[in-house]
Design a protein around this nucleic acid. Structure first.
Lengths: 336, 336
DNA sequence: GAGGTCTGTGAATACGTATTCACAAGGCGG
DNA sequence: CCGCCTTGTGAATACGTATTCACAGACCTC
C-alpha cells in the first residue's frame, strides 16, 4: 500500500524541468513553452500525476470546496436538491462536503464551525436556519453563505426560496374559488420561515376572499402529527371540506389519514392541496394537486449567488424568490 | 471581509508561547504544562481560533475526509444511507465529500480520480460499481474503498450488502408457500450485482420448490419500464398471480400499474413482494410486504470496515452480507 | 551594435500545521 | 556534588503546490 503519492517534483524530475514549471503547466494561466508543456504532460501522464488539491488549496487560499448543510434528507425534495447541488458544484470544479443536521441549533453551531475549519470557500444551508452569532462567525472567516429554502426573518443573509407567501396566498384563493368554505391548514413547522411564510400567505389569501380559515395546525413536518391533526379536525363539530398541507409529505400523510383512517374520498369529500411537487405527487396513488417548487431553478440560483459571493462579484439581489406554479392534478375538486 | 484567518502563530503570540506549543495543545497527544495549556486555550478562545484542517491534513497525511460516491439518490433507501453515513462519519471526526454519479463508468472514472486528488482517506461507493482499473488507481494511491450495496463480481473488493441471493431465494419460497404458481420477477438492473443476485436467488428458490418462474423482466430500476413490464406480463396468455419486485420503488410502480392501469386488487388478484423496506412501504397506500435491508447495520458495518482499512487494522471479512428479514404487511396474500 | 522589451525558466518562499531534534531546567540516586 | 533521567519548550523543517523575483537569452528598434 504505497502512500507514495506522485508529486510535482517527481514529474519535474522525469520531464527534466523544475517543480514550478510543472505547477505552471497545470495552472493554465502562466505562459509555458509548448514543447516544455508537452514533455511535462507526457511525464505526468506516464506517472499518473494529479495535483494535490489540499496543497493547492493551502497555497492559493481557495479550497474549491463548499459546505452543504442539510436537514430533512428524508424529504425527497431535499434529496433531489442535494443531488442537484453536488452535480452543479462538480460542473464548476467544486466539491460538496455534506453535513446532515438536525434542527437543533446547538449541534449546528459546532458543525458549522467544524466545517469552517475545513476552509470551505462557501456554505449552503438547506432547510436549516442559523442564528446571528453563527452568521457572524462565517462572515468573519470570510466565508460567504446562502440559505436555501429556509430564510431567516430579521436578517439580510443571502437567501433563495420559492415565493412561499405568494404560494400560500394562491393556495387559499384556489380552494375558495373552487367553492370550499371550511378550509384548514395543516402547516409546516412554525419554527421555520418556510412554514411561517406559507401559513401567513394562506391567512392573507383567505382574508382576501373574506373567508375565515377553519384552523391551522402545526405538523412540524411530522407524519404522525399530521395524521393526528386530521383526526382532530374531523373530530370537531365543523369539519373541513379542504385541507392545504405545508408540503407534499404532509399532504401524503393527510391523504392517508383521510382515506384509510376516516374512509373519506378525495376530492369528493375533501380537497387536498400540497406544496413542493416531489416526484411522488404524480404517482396515481396520490395524484396530488400542488405548487411546484422548481428545484432546478432554485439550485441554479443558489449556486450562482454563492459563486458571485465567492468571487467577489456584486450580487444583484440578496433575496431570490422563485414563483411556484400550480400543478393541477386530481386532489382538488373542479369548480362547482 | 477579512480573509484574515487566525492562525496558531497568532494564538502563540497572544499566549506568549511558540507556534509548536499551540499545535501541541491542540494535538492532545503531546505533554504540555497545564498552566501553559490554560493560557493557550484562553488565548485561542478569545481569538476564536480553530486549527486549519487543510494544513493539518497536509502535515499529517490524513485529511479525515472520506469520499462518498452515490448513485440513485432518488431512492429513499440511498438518501437515508447518505444521511446515516454523514452522521456516522461526523461522529468519528470525519467528513464526507459527496459525489453523485450516474451509472456511466466513463464519468465515474474522472470523478473518482478527482476525489482522490483531494486526498480523501477512504472511499465509499454506494450503489455504484467500479472497474478494476479504477480500483487499482485507488489502491495505488493507498486509499481504501468499500462498496456499499453494490458488490462487484469477480473482484475481492471489500463489500457490504444485504444477503441478496438469500433474500431472493426466500422471496421465491414465500410466494410459492403462499400458494402462488405463476410468479414473475420484475427485476432490478441486471448490470448491477444487487439486481443479479436477487434474481439468481429468486430463480434458485423457485428451483428449490420445483416451480418454473413465469418471467423475469429487467426494470433497470426505472418506474416507467416497470410499469410497461406489468402491462406486458398481463398482455400474455398466462398472467402472473404474484410479482417479486427488484426493490421497493419497483414494487410501488408495479402496485400502481396493477391497481390503476389494470384495475386489479392486491393481494386478492396478485401478490406483490418488495425489497428494501423504505419508510414508504409502511404507508397504508402501499402496505408492502418486503424484505428489510437494515440500513443502519449496513452503514455501521461499512464505516467499521473502512475505518479498519484506513487505520491499517486487519479486516475480519472482506465481504459482509447482512441478512434481510421479511416484513410482512398486506401485499402478499395469506396461506391458502 | 547598444539599449530595450519580451519570453521562459529556476531559486526562493509562502500557505498553516505537525513533528523531530536540541536544549534548558529541575529532580533524583549515589 | 556529579551524572542521569524527565519534563517542557523553541528552532528548524516537512507536507506539495503557487507565486514572486531574478535572470538568461532571443528578438526588436533606431
Amino acid at each position: 500500500m504505497g502512500r507514495s503519492r506522485i508529486t510535482a517534483r517527481d514529474v519535474a524530475a522525469a520531464a527534466g524541468v523544475s517543480q514550478p514549471t510543472v505547477s505552471r503547466v497545470f495552472a493554465d494561466n502562466a505562459r509555458v513553452d509548448p514543447a516544455t508543456r508537452d514533455r511535462v504532460m507526457r511525464a505526468a501522464g506516464d506517472l499518473g500525476y494529479r495535483p494535490n488539491r489540499l496543497a493547492r488549496a493551502m497555497s492559493r487560499g481557495r479550497s474549491h470546496t463548499v459546505g452543504l448543510i442539510v436537514a430533512g434528507l428524508d424529504n425527497p425534495f431535499y434529496a433531489d436538491a442535494v443531488d442537484r447541488f453536488s452535480r452543479a458544484l462538480q460542473a464548476r470544479g467544486y466539491h460538496a462536503v455534506i453535513v446532515t443536521a438536525s434542527n437543533d441549533a446547538a449541534d449546528l453551531d459546532g458543525q458549522v464551525r467544524d466545517i469552517l475549519a475545513m476552509q470551505v470557500d462557501g456554505l449552503i444551508l438547506a432547510s436549516v436556519s442559523i442564528d446571528n452569532a453563527l452568521a457572524r462567525a462565517a462572515s468573519q472567516a470570510g466565508v460567504p453563505l446562502v440559505l436555501f429554502n429556509r430564510g431567516q426573518h430579521g436578517t439580510d443573509l443571502p437567501t433563495v426560496t420559492s415565493a412561499n407567501h405568494d404560494g400560500g396566498r394562491r393556495a387559499a384563493h384556489l380552494l375558495v374559488d373552487r367553492g370550499h368554505r371550511r378550509i384548514a391548514h395543516v402547516s409546516g413547522w412554525q419554527g421555520s420561515a418556510t412554514g411561517v411564510d406559507r401559513q401567513r400567505g394562506f391567512l392573507d389569501g383567505m382574508a382576501d376572499r373574506g373567508v375565515a380559515p377553519l384552523a391551522c395546525i402545526d405538523s412540524r413536518y411530522d407524519r404522525d402529527r399530521a395524521r393526528r391533526a386530521v383526526h382532530d379536525l374531523f373530530g370537531a363539530d365543523v369539519t373541513p371540506d379542504a385541507i392545504f398541507a405545508g408540503n407534499d409529505l404532509i399532504a401524503f400523510a393527510v391523504l392517508s389519514a383521510l382515506r384509510h383512517d376516516l374512509g373519506l374520498s378525495v376530492p369528493r369529500d375533501v380537497s387536498v392541496l400540497g406544496y413542493d411537487d416531489v416526484a411522488m405527487a404524480a404517482w396515481p396513488e396520490f395524484d396530488l394537486t400542488t405548487f411546484r417548487q422548481p428545484a432546478g431553478r432554485m439550485v441554479d440560483a443558489t449556486i450562482g449567488m454563492l459563486m458571485d459571493l465567492i468571487d467577489g462579484r456584486p450580487v444583484p439581489d440578496r433575496l431570490t424568490e422563485i414563483r411556484s406554479d400550480l400543478i393541477e392534478r386530481g386532489s382538488v375538486r373542479a369548480a362547482p
